[in-house]
């Protein structure tokens, strides 16, 4: 009739569905027959039949933690069956839980680990609470709505570059002992490498270009892994609220003040983080990641004089 193409396609869709259903029923009957003949369970046989597409690829351990529960159960059941057949003792069925327990403990600096990918593009699960800079990236706090979209990644790249520069500018790089040479020789100092000189020049330029406080913050967070926004002393208003909390009598009042305190704490934390953004951007200008014009537009906005505003 009139619905030629649409109706034809709907009909063939229905046919394909029926064929798939028939195929599934036939496979299950076949599986049950085989299982009965071999004397094993249907689930085990189905698990054996399942093609393993990733068999030849070596994955990092973190990738194994991320598997779905159904897969782990199937795998665990399979190994448990094998252990039963070959008589190996002490096979743990719930090893997945065990691994996750270990992973979720305390990490570097006695902070709880947060195991997750660093961003949407990264394939590996990491402890994102290992260092403040990585934590900022994972939480999406390296970028605000004041910035251009994607500027957070520029900041992250610039901060990593700053780390490299600082590493290259160290007084002495890590070296092993030289056992082959004769001892006690007075050969004189080794020449300083060009790379080290370049790094030192870059660091000096970055340092000269910004306020010493900002530079200190940058080094704290990016190099020394200091959680600067947690170190900061609570502000005057914050402290006043804390005092008020101690004096509050009703449950309702305490709740309200607690909420106000947490809001104020977030505000103060964001204040420090914004200073860090500025510091990283300044370093990024020196290292050529951001143009001076962009930096000026973001950070040095000043209202125009009243006379100009009136004219416009």
């Amino acid at each position: 009739m009139s619905n030629s193409v649409i109706m034809r396609r709907l009909k063939s869709l229905e046919q394909r569905r029926q064929e798939a259903a028939t195929r599934k029923t036939r496979y299950q009957t076949h599986l049950a027959e085989r299982a009965e003949r071999l004397g094993v369970s249907v689930e085990l046989l189905a698990a054996i039949d399942k093609p393993v597409a990733h068999g030849s690829i070596a994955l990092p351990l973190a990738a194994h933690y991320g598997r779905d529960e159904a897969f782990e159960r199937r795998r665990g059941t399979f190994y448990a069956h094998m252990a039963m057949v070959f008589g190996s003792a002490g096979w743990r069925l719930s090893f997945y839980d065990h691994e996750m327990q270990i992973a979720a403990g305390q990490g570097y600096g006695e902070r709880d680990r947060v195991i997750q990918p660093l961003d949407r593009d990264s394939a590996v699960n990491l402890n994102t609470a290992a260092a403040p800079l990585e934590w900022l990236v994972a939480k999406g706090k390296l970028e605000t709505d004041q910035d251009e979209p994607g500027h957070g990644m520029v900041r992250f790249a610039a901060a990593l570059r700053f780390r490299d520069e600082m590493d290259g500018a160290q007084v002495a790089a890590l070296k092993g002992q030289a056992f082959d040479g004769a001892s006690g020789g007075g050969a004189g100092g080794r020449p300083v490498s060009d790379y080290k000189l370049d790094c030192m020049a870059t660091i000096s330029a970055i340092r000269e270009g910004m306020h010493p406080g900002l530079y200190r913050l940058l080094v704290w967070v990016v190099i020394d892994d200091v959680w600067a926004w947690e170190k900061a002393r609570p502000g005057k208003y914050h402290r006043m609220l804390k005092r008020a909390l101690a004096k509050a009598r009703t449950e309702k009042g305490r709740d309200k003040i607690t909420r106000m305190i947490s809001k104020q704490a977030t505000k103060e934390q964001n204040f420090v983080i914004e200073k860090l953004h500025k510091a990283i951007d300044m370093a990024a200008v020196t290292m050529g990641y951001v143009t001076a014009e962009d930096f000026r537009r973001r950070w040095l906005r000043r209202p125009k004089p009243a006379s100009v505003q009136k004219a416009a």
């Binding site: 009739m1 009139s2 619905n3 030629s4 193409v5 649409i6």
Partner: peptide, 15 residues
Amino acid sequence: FRRAQHDESVRYIIY
């Protein structure tokens, strides 16, 4: 007789 006057795409969108 009823005749298909409208385009396939128009009918699909309507459905």
